[in-house]
Amino acid sequence: MTKLGKLMMLEWRKLKQKMIMGELIIYWGILMFLPIFFIKMVSTDFGESYSTIIQLMISIQMGFVLFGASLINQVVIDEYKNKTISLAFGYPISRKKLVTAKVLFISLFVFCCTIVSFLLAGITTYLLDHFFQIIDGQPTIADLTTYFSKMIGHSFMITLISLIPLYFFGVWKRATFPTVLCALFLMQFQNFSYLLNIDINPDMVNVGLCLLGAASVYLSIKMVDKVGDL
């Protein structure tokens, strides 16, 4: 195993595993049944076809941006507040490598959990529709191809967006509550445009948010020597 791999395993051992797994089960449980809930309780328009419900399911998975914030709080902010990161910075390993391991750990965790969520939501929605005839028509090969391709792309996108609070609220300010608020805002960002009647291109918004996430990661690693002891 590489040194980065060992550092990532160390991050997993330091994590409050029972709390994180409990939180993760809640996310999966809610997101599994949320598409059908929207059809039954919010609008039957979502059940017009599988292509319609797929778009809803994709947007629902943005909930994992909040899970990313939870990991930032535990993996980065809590260590600064508890001073345990000072001990890690005393190891004969560069700070940049330590932060890189933390970023990779958070990224891989969010990405894999989002993939699993997509799969669980897709299977649950199909099975409930199979037994209760909630969605009009049947899923086509094109629908399945779209879903699986977007599952990969959007899981990557959600991972990057979840890292936007990392530098400013995590490495620099070490602020737990603002990190969560930032994640909540990012989750609902595109909905605000509808509420305010602002016409924006969703794809361009997602690209912009992904670039912000990438910039946050870059700054977190690049600037850790300057802000790490503040």
Rank of each mutant, 00 (worst) to 15 (best):
K16S: 12
F38Q: 06
F111N: 10
F38P: 01
H130V: 01
F37P: 06
C182T: 08
K150R: 12
F64G: 01
G153P: 07
L4Q: 05
Y80C: 03
T52H: 08
Q188R: 09
R13C: 11
L144W: 14
M21E: 08
L209V: 02
T145R: 15
M21L: 12
G170F: 02
A214H: 15
I20M: 15
K6G: 05
I161D: 04
G90D: 07
M62S: 13
P35T: 10
G153W: 04
K226H: 14
F89N: 04
I30C: 04
V207D: 05
I36S: 14
K102G: 05
T44H: 14
D229A: 10
S107T: 03
P178D: 04
F64T: 05
E79H: 06
V180M: 15
W12H: 14
T2H: 08
Q61F: 01
L119A: 11
I134D: 06
K83Q: 13
N206Q: 11
S59Y: 14
V110Y: 05
R174G: 10
K226G: 09
T176F: 00
C113M: 12
G47V: 07
S216H: 02
G228N: 07
T100M: 14
S107I: 00
S49Y: 06
W172N: 02
K150A: 14
V217T: 03
Q17R: 15
S86Q: 15
I198M: 10
S43K: 05
T124N: 13
F132V: 11
I58E: 10
L119Q: 08
A101C: 08
Q138V: 10
I36F: 07
L15N: 01
T52A: 11
V42S: 14
K6L: 13
D78R: 00
G170A: 05
D45W: 09
L71H: 01
M187W: 04
D229Y: 12
L120G: 12
V65P: 10
T44E: 14
L104I: 08
M62Q: 13
M57N: 08
L195H: 05
P178M: 12
G153I: 00
Q74C: 10
F67A: 01
L160G: 07
L7Y: 06
